[in-house]
Each structure stands twice: as structure tokens, then as C-alpha cells.
Design a protein around this nucleic acid. Sequence first.
DNA 1: ACTTCGACTTGCACGAATCTTT
DNA 2: AAAGATTCGTGCAAGTCGAAGT
Length: 903
Amino acid sequence: MAVEAPAKHVFDFDDDDDDGPVVFKRNNTLSSKQNQLNSEVKKASSQRSDGHSGSLASYVQASNGQSSNSQKNKAIPSSKSLPVRSPILSPKASTSSARTSPVKSPVANFKTPASLNDHSKQALKQHKCNVVKEEKSPIKGATETNSDDDDDLQPLSARLKGISNQGTKGASTSSTSQSHRLVPKTEIKGSTKDPDDEAPLPVRFNMKSSAGTSSSKLYDSDEKKPLASNGEQNGSTVKGKQEKSSMLSGKRPLDKGNSLDQSSAKKPKISDTSTAMKSKQLAVKAEKADEDDDDDIPISQRIKKSTPTNSKTSSMKQKAAKVVSSSLKKLNRKSKKEFKNSKYIKSTKVSPSSGDGQKKWSTLVHNGVIFPPPYKLHGIKLLYDGRPIDLTPEQEEVATMFAVMKDTDYMNKPQFKKNFWEDWSKLLGKNHTIKDLDKCDFTPIYEWHLQEKEKKKQMSSEEKKALKEEKLKQEEKYMWAIVDGVREKVGNFRVEPPGLFRGRGEHPKMGKLKKRIRPSDITINIGKNAPIPECPIPGESWKDIKHDNTVTWLAFWNDPINPKEFKYVFLAASSSLKGQSDKEKYEKARMLKEYIRNIRAAYTKDFTSKDVTKRQIAVATYLIDKLALRAGNDKDDDEADTVGCCTLKVGNVECIPPNKLKFDFLGKDSIQYVNTVEVELPVYNAIGQFQTGKSKSDDLFDKLDTSKLNAHLKELMPGLTAKVFRTYNASITLDEMLNKETKDGDVAEKVVIYQRANKEVAIICNHQRSISKSHSAQMSRLTEKITELKGVLKELKIDLDRAKKGKPPLKDADGKQKRNLTPEALEKKIAQTNAKIEKMERDMQTKEDLKTVALGTSKINYLDPRITVAWCKRHEVPIEKIFNKSLLAKFAWAMDVDPDFRF
DNA sequence: ACTTCGACTTGCACGAATCTTT
DNA sequence: AAAGATTCGTGCAAGTCGAAGT
């Protein structure tokens, strides 16, 4: 397994060409292992070219934006922070490397983008336009055309795809909400036009419209995508539930450091599985091989395979070809370099234990954490029954935390006040004058707070800058860690300040005092030979020091709100440790692609199993696959009561004859999920059975929990768990949409395509955001402008009429005479104005559509960056148009992917 | 077979930084 | 230059999931 084509390894190593970042690899066994791992996995799975090979090297170095420096740093562990330059971002960074050629944007083909913002904005605008159009484009009836292939997979074909749309939006929150989803709804049924297109449009289209198509076959694409897509769903956050008793769990003693951990062997995690996977996978593949269905193949590919009819397709192919060839060249060059770096090679090959579930690092040096400053008394008194009250510093500190939240929604929540009072009154003591929170008037403190805020705002920019620098100076040493000789950014080195707990939704513990964390609460994890960080607070000391290299955390403390939980300090997302696991996550999801067909067939079969547990597992898996639901672990009573798939309650699902299901529940972060979906009849029937004889608050899947579900999934594919489906569905959707819908056009248009795909994924995953406070104001402002323009238009038309008759234009609003224009000129103006109006209307629509959709979450967590990078390379879109600075750093490992990469 | 630990990923909100518009 | 809008970065809450404990 391990051996990958040598060539590959060699290649990516460092290319001079433009494309790749200059790479240095660090010879770290760990990474090499992983690298190997990945390669194995890849191999196992039939992957097409993904540029994975060299990636490791490059990303390693690039990892936190520090590029070439890493090597240097190695030598000097204690080094001070060097300026961080991301090779990706700045060409200059490449100094150390041998490379001569000018480095452009490291990401190969990308052209240097100049100002992102401008572009992107434009893109956005355009995007909006396009969006509208596209959506309108008729999507074929889900049924008709297509898909013969589906047949192969019978089970799949069988399933219905349409979803109804009615997505209500957030229940409580947004009443208006429904608007956005309309676009799609409208026109879906359009007739199908080209056969080619058959390619399934993204699900969303189908779904939306279709509510009904039942029996028709689905596109296979559907199969891959979650039904959910129909945009309708989502609700906005709801705030509504409550109940639940709170009980605090007692804390348990921390385990004190056993230095043995270091050696302690945790079980191998992924790595093992990966190996295993490989074999299984192969088997599966073999099976498949004969059938020729492409189900699992991305649509676009299939298209290619079969008959590319349309010009677009062909052109794309050509492009791709070009790209490829160039990349190959590049690779060759790389190979030369590679040799130089024998270490790298070695390391790559070495470490058979790709599994490395255990050892995460060999050496780890860092400076610990920084604490928030001590509380500063302000001396402002609150009023109790109208009289000012003296408080001790501790009492005042907590009172201030509460006062400051005066204008938040928490103040309307009795639970919040109750919890706050419980904790604060304890501090006040039994005989304190203050006996009733309702008689407290925190206004003076609140006002003081506002003033302070104002003062800060009013500071001159020099002052602000000075303060910032001051802060930076203090924090600098905590910002970096040296992991196996490479300087990496630390994610959260600041200890959380004390405050009032702000739980989401109806959290039973909201308002409780989150006490100040002291050094004696903190356990540090650091390399054996590294100096132990000095405790920043004089006279105090760390709770414990560990040297556990099987974990990645640098420090942790117990959560004061829930002492049995931990708060960890980890490396930043740009670190190679994080990058590595990110990559593994996507590789696993890609592997699912190879198994998905069989998995779907299996659960489809089990919809009617006599064994209830089996049936429940089948239906649950179906929902997770189709709707991208989360697993749904069991929760304690002292948490907000939200659910996931396994914890759905009978009342969360409503059966709507003949075969639709309406979901309505609060998911993670108490975000409402509302979606009505058409499902296959067996599923519909099974849900009905699971509900019978139960009350609304009973578990729908009473025989199920996440561990059973995951145990079952693992039998189907090594390492498979419920969350993999989310990653898979998100990434495959992006990949398919991008490949299907990207057309020739300028960069801005392409960016629009990307954003549309991104939006689709966000909808599938139900990623929401709260509506900005100024949203409605913004909308009405736009409406106003449009009306104004329409007025202008009317006038122009009148003038045009007059001009045609040889009359002068009417006077303008101020009574002044307007310039005499020729009819042609007027017509031109009219056209321009019309265009402007249309554009504004589209902008408005898009804005409305996206007002509750959060695009960022999927970009950060669900979309394989290699899809994006490869697409950008293929279509000559500067990567910076899609990824901002932090994403570029986070996805450094994906930057040298082959342009042909497909998820 | 469960429950509880423990570690790590995912997710939304908010404030700061930037960019746009007035 | 101020005001408004958007994007970015941070904070920290809330999930997932494997493994240890009982």
C-alpha cells in the first residue's frame, strides 16, 4: 500500500512553476506518516488525480503562513516570532528556497488578483443576477428525462426525490422569511431542454419544484445529494422551547498528569481504519466495476464518459487537458528538486504506522497561555430601591457583567436572571441589603459602560494603534508554538475571561457565573524537554504539567459552567496538525463516494426489515444521507434540548400523505430546521410505524442511539460515521455544481457560480445566520431607489415621445429645462435605466434570499478545498477570490492539488 | 451494554477591520 | 469624513465520536 508511484511523490515537491508554493518539507516523521497514509488511502480509492502527493510537503511548510521560515525555525526552537508571510499570499516569502523562478501567487494558475474586494463585490452583484436567471432556468422535471443509469441502481432510482417546498423560515424569528426561497420554487417544471443537461440539476432545483413527482426516476445526482436541498426548509432560530430541569453534575477530579501518557497508547485511530478501508474499498470497487452505473461518480464525470454532447462539455475537457499537461510538466521539474530533499522522501516512505492514531508530535514547545487582566473597579453604584449600594470588588465585578447585558435578549429570559441571581446572591451573602434582583437598577453601571465604550471609540487612531501594539507585544510570545521544529500558530492562547454564561437557545444554565480561571486550574501539555512555561501570574502556578504526545492540546482547564467538560488550547487552523486531520476528513468523505451506492442499496433494503432496530437504522441512515442531518447524540437535562437524527422526537416529524414528511425541530445551536420532503413510501410507512403508540415527546428512534448507528455504519465502510455524510454531501454537491454550471465567462461570473454552489450547500446543511438589524432598512432603501429610478424611467419615456415629435423635453423636478436629447440618446438612456433597475431588483432578491443563509460555515468545514482550488485552476479564477487570507492559510495543504481533481 | 471521559470539530454571534457610499 | 455595509477574525458554545470505566 504504501508505495505510491514514486513519480508522484517526487512531483509535487516543489515546483517552480508558478504553481506551487515553494515547498520545503519538514522532515517530520509524523507528517510523513500521514502523508503516506493519505496516499494509501487515495490509492485505495480509485482516485483520479488529486494533487495530493506533493501536498504534504507544501502544506507543511505553508502551514501557518510562514513558509520558508520553518526550516530556520527548526533550528531555533525558541525563536522569536518571525514575520509571518504566507507564501501563498506573498511571493516574496520564498527567499530561502532554492527556487529561482518568480513565485506568483503560489497557487499556480491563479492570476494575481488584485483587489479582492472589488472584484468580489462585483462578482456578487453579478452573481445575483445570474442567480436569478439560473434558477429560472427550467429544471427538468425530475422525472422525465433522464437517467437511465439510475436504473442500475434500482434502489436508488426508486426513491423519490422531490421535496416539497414550503420552507418556512424561521418560525419565531422571521416571519417574513419565506421569501427567499421562492425563486427556486417557481419555475421548476420547465421543460427539459437539452438532453445533455440531463444532468441533473442540482437537487435543489428538483426538489423545490417538484413536490410531487413521485415515481419518476431521479437523477442520480439526486442520489448523491441530500434531499434537503430544497431550499425551503430552514427556519430561523427559534427561541422557543423550554422546560427541562437543570441539574448540575458534580465535578470529577481531573486526572492528574500521568506522565506516562506520553507513552500511553491510545488506540490508533483513523490510520488503522484507513488501511482497512483500503482493502474493503477495493473489494467494493471490484464489485462495482462491472456494473456500469455511475452513481457514485460525479455527474459531470459521467457526462464526460458517456456522451458529451454539448459544446460546453467539450470545451471544458479541452481546458482540463491543457491544464493537466502543464501540471505534468510542472511535476517533472519538481521531481528534480525532490531528490535534493532526501529527507522528505525518506520520511514519506517511512513511518508505516500511518495510523498514527497515537503520536501527534515529537517535540512541542510553547509558552503557555495568557490570562485576562484583573478586574478594575469602577466604583459606580447600582441602585437598590432607588438607593446607591456599596459593593465589594467581587460583587461589583459580577454586577457589572450583568449590567452590561442590559440591552441583550437575555434580559428577557427569566432563566437567565434566575441563574444570575443564584450566583450573585451567593456572593452578596445572606444578610445583604440586596434581596431582590428586580429591585436592582443597574442603569448607572450600564451608562458607565456605554461611556467607556464611547471613549474607546473616540480615541485617536494613533492611540488605538499604540494600544494594539502594546497588546501584541504582550501576546506575541504566546501566539506561537514549535511543533517538531516548525513554528505554528496557536489558536486560542487567551484564557477565557470571567463572565455570565451565554448559552444558545433555552439553555438551562444561561446567566450562571463563569468564574475566573487561574493558573491553578490549568494543565499544560508540552514536550518533555521543553522548558515549562513560566506562570504569568506571579506567585501562582499551573495545576499540572503533562507531556502527552498523543494529543494535540497545549493546555486545558475545566469548564467552570460544566466542570466535567474541558476547554482546550489547540493550535490554529493553519497548523499542519490541523491541516492533516482536515485532509483526512475529506479523504474519508471521498472514500464514502465509493461505498455510497452499496450503502444506499443496503438501507433501502432494510426499510422493510422485520427487525425494528434494523429498520430504524435504515431510516435514520437515509435521513442522514438525504437530509444531511447530524447524528444526534443523547443530551443531558442540563443542556438546551436540541436534537439530531437519533434523538428526533415523534413530534418533530409529521407525516403528510401520501408520502411526505415534515421535519421541524431545533438542531445544533438551537437553530430551527424546517423542511418538508417527499420520501420513498417505505420510509414514510416506517416513520409512521415508529410513531404509533408514542407521545410527541417520545423518541422517534427508540431503538437507536449514535453509537449503535455509527457501529453499524462502520460495518459498511471502515471509519464511517454519521458526520461523514454531511461532508460528503456538501463536497459532492459543490463539485457537481461547479462542474456542471461553470461556463465561459469572466471571473466575476465564475465567482457567482461558485457562490451559488456554496449557497446550495449552506442550505443543505441548514447553516443559518441571524438577520442583520439593518436588513429591513436596507431593503426599504433599495426599494426607494428603485421607485425613484422608475420615476426617472417614466420621464425618459415621455421625453422620448416628445422628442420623436420634435418637442423639447419636460422640465425637471426643479423646473429647469433639461437638455435636448435625440430619440436615440433617450432610448439608450432608457435601456440603461432599465438595466439598472433590473440589476437592483436582482440584488434585492439575492439579498433577501441570503439574509438567513450563512455561507462561511460550509466553506470552512464542509467543502473540500481541493475542489475549489482545482476549479480555480481550471477556470483561471484567482483563488483569492474565493478564499480569504485565513482560509488560504488553513487550506495550504490543498493548494497544489492537480487541476483535474474531482471530489 | 451503558455511562462517562476525553479530545477534537463544527457553528453562530459579535466586534474589529475594511470597503462603499453619501 | 462620516455613515453604512460587508468581510474577517475571534470567542466560546455545542456538537461528534472513540475509548475508558463500571
